[in-house]
Amino acid sequence: MMEIINEYVFSVFFVETLLNGLLYGGVLALLSLGLNLIFGVIDVVWICYAELVMLGMYTIYFMHVRYGIPLIPSSVICVLMVALLGYVLHRIIIAHVLGKAPINQLLATGGVLFFLQSIATLMFGVEFLSLGVSLGSFQLTEDIYLSKSQFVAFIVAAAAVAGMYFFLSRSYMGAAIRAISQDREIMILMGVDANRLYGITSAIGGGLAGLAACLLALQFDVHPFVGISFGPIVFMVCVMGGLGNLVGGFIAAFVFAELIAIGGYFADLEWGTVLAFCVFVITMFIRPEGLFARKS
């Protein structure tokens, strides 16, 4: 028994596994940030959020690979483009289902998901497109490496959460967004233009999707269905952290990612996901509103 513990737990590979979990958590945290913000403020779950990320990945691919624009300006264009998409999505679709039954909202955004997947297939084809950029890795010891692209995603996710926190708590616009998320009816009665605030929030959420797209494009090929790999898991991270709770989603992303990494290290890879989903289900029984849900 001690031999097994020594071999598996007190091992550099276990340390690498924990680091892998931490870095993958950064990717999930970044993805969950925008979705959580939008739900927290507008109270609509964008099932199609991962598809916005997919369109962002296509944007950066075309800017950088096809048009030869350097990576940083391409990333800025990508963030702005997806922010605009988020705003347009709100004006065209979401604004019309606000206040409607949640199932109608889910069906509407679900429809957008299939629309975006299909339109991407028609426009860009089914090939897997690659940015062809590798940031390499940090070698910490002979056996432990850290992926630079995942490390950057981790740092950006942490910075984005901090940035959002300060924006929401210190700025006038942030205060307005927090106010409308707390009481939609009263704010309108006080003369606040709710649609404008919702539009701005959607643009910020879209921008965060664009930011995630920039970093994911460094690690993954883009294709019309890339959202399938992330969509469901990001949604669960948000629910586990308490839908609408930015910090809760951030922490839940790391809990989820570590469970997947550790489970996958000690058993077959798929058991990691099984373990994470088991914990998710148990969490839902104990705290249906999520681990870090705000008090209503």
């Binding site: 590979f13 596994t17 993958y24 990612a257 997947i260 290290y265 890879l269 798929e270």
Partner: peptide
């Protein structure tokens, strides 16, 4: 070892 073809992270397998 097997893994899901849609997996978004294979780092545990690499380790």
């Amino acid at each position: 070892e097997g893994y899901a073809a849609t997996a978004s992270d294979l780092s545990a397998l690499v380790t």
